[in-house]
């Protein structure tokens, strides 16, 4: 057995038997709390069972646009209308990091139930929008950049 192999195995043994158990003993909080501490700054928050249920409900969307015929968003600003409610929940219901990009579209939703009975595949649109709104980080400020 060569010397370098001995060094490598010793390092692995130290990591497994000393360093990792020591870290486990020293750390504070639950796994979810540590996940939030590490990643919330990047906009990534844990996916809860209700988030998963919402994602599954949104995945029934086929992007047909029928809901938009009954949507008051068509009275909103052109940029918001161009994105569309459908795009908002299709694009951003999976990754919370990009959810703030849909903030204007989501907040332009008047929460009228006009779209729900229009969906041919039965997507609970208003419920999804309500849920995504509740997931928006409360104090998100867009990073400074070119307009």
């Amino acid at each position: 057995m060569s010397a370098s192999r001995v060094v490598a195995l010793s390092y692995l043994a130290w990591r497994a038997l000393v360093a990792h158990p020591w870290k486990r003993l020293a750390q504070r909080g639950t796994g979810a709390e540590r996940f939030v501490a590490s990643y919330a700054g990047e906009g990534l928050v844990p996916t809860r069972p209700e988030d998963r249920a919402i994602g599954e409900a949104a995945s029934a969307c086929i992007g047909c646009g029928l809901c938009e015929a009954g949507c008051a968003l068509s009275g909103a600003a052109a940029s918001v209308r161009d994105l569309g409610l459908r795009a908002a929940f299709r694009l951003y219901s999976r990754g919370t990091a990009e959810l703030p990009l849909a903030r204007t579209a989501l907040e332009a939703c008047a929460a009228c139930p006009g779209c729900d009975p229009l969906c041919p595949t039965g997507v609970p649109i208003t419920r999804i929008v309500r849920h995504l709104l509740s997931r928006l980080p409360p104090s998100y400020n867009p990073p400074p950049g070119p307009p």
């Binding site: 047909c64 029928l66 009975p117 229009l118 969906c119 041919p120 039965g122």
Partner: peptide, 8 residues
């Protein structure tokens, strides 16, 4: 439940 795929 909804207007149906005829609307599409």
């Amino acid at each position: 439940r909804s207007p149906g795929a005829t609307a599409l």
